[in-house]
Amino acid sequence: MIGYPDEIDCIWVGSDSNGFVAAFVTAGFGCIPWGALKDAVLPIENIELSLAELPSISDANLLISYPRPDDFIALAQKGLFVYDWPDVHRVERDYTRKYEKVAAPTNPVLMQKLPPLLRASAAGIKFNLLFSQENFVRVEDHFQPWEIEAPSL
């Protein structure tokens, strides 16, 4: 997939300074590093299915109340930190333009433990932070403007 998947809720993955992995749920509007869209080893439209095939290895802590949190909990049970794009539910004046951590694993997975294609995808999107310590991630703070895709508004 080239270009932003407008209004399509998709998931991309990234890794932190210690090699732990997070899943970022775009809600069809969250910023996506260009590397997750272009020249990705695992196309963004295949990430969610690949994550679903991972075994559950952890308990999950739900950090934000959701009417239907099952998908977030399932991802955290696979050892992933889970971030969602909450601005989709807000009026523009209340936008944070940040992903918010909604679930965390008690036993986080290192990217080296992932299957090769997921590992390569997570390694290609490297954040200089620790997911265990960051409740909010602003993609623009970690990549150059030309390295980010956002929905056309």
Rank of each mutant, 00 (worst) to 15 (best):
S50P: 14
A22E: 02
V91Q: 13
L54D: 08
F81D: 03
T26N: 05
D71H: 06
A60R: 05
D39G: 13
P69C: 04
S132H: 03
R90V: 09
L37H: 04
L63S: 04
V91D: 13
V25C: 09
A36V: 11
I47A: 02
F131L: 10
E92C: 07
G124H: 15
L42C: 00
K126R: 06
E134H: 13
Y99V: 02
S56Y: 13
L118R: 06
N61S: 12
V82H: 01
F127D: 11
E53K: 12
Y95S: 01
L49K: 15
S132L: 04
Y95T: 00
S50F: 14
R138H: 12
T96G: 10
D87C: 09
P86R: 13
M111R: 15
D39Q: 08
E92K: 12
Q112I: 07
T26W: 09
A120V: 00
I125V: 12
I47V: 14
F24E: 14
K78E: 03
M111D: 11
M111Y: 15
A104W: 09
Y99L: 03
R93D: 00
P116Y: 01
T106R: 14
T26V: 09
M111T: 12
A60E: 05
P86I: 15
G28T: 12
S50I: 13
W34D: 11
L118D: 06
L129E: 10
R90M: 13
L117P: 00
V91R: 13
A60Q: 06
K78H: 07
D71M: 07
N107S: 11
Q144K: 10
I32L: 09
G124V: 15
F24W: 15
K78F: 08
L63F: 08
C31N: 08
I44V: 06
D87W: 08
A22Q: 01
V139D: 00
K113G: 01
P115W: 09
I125R: 03
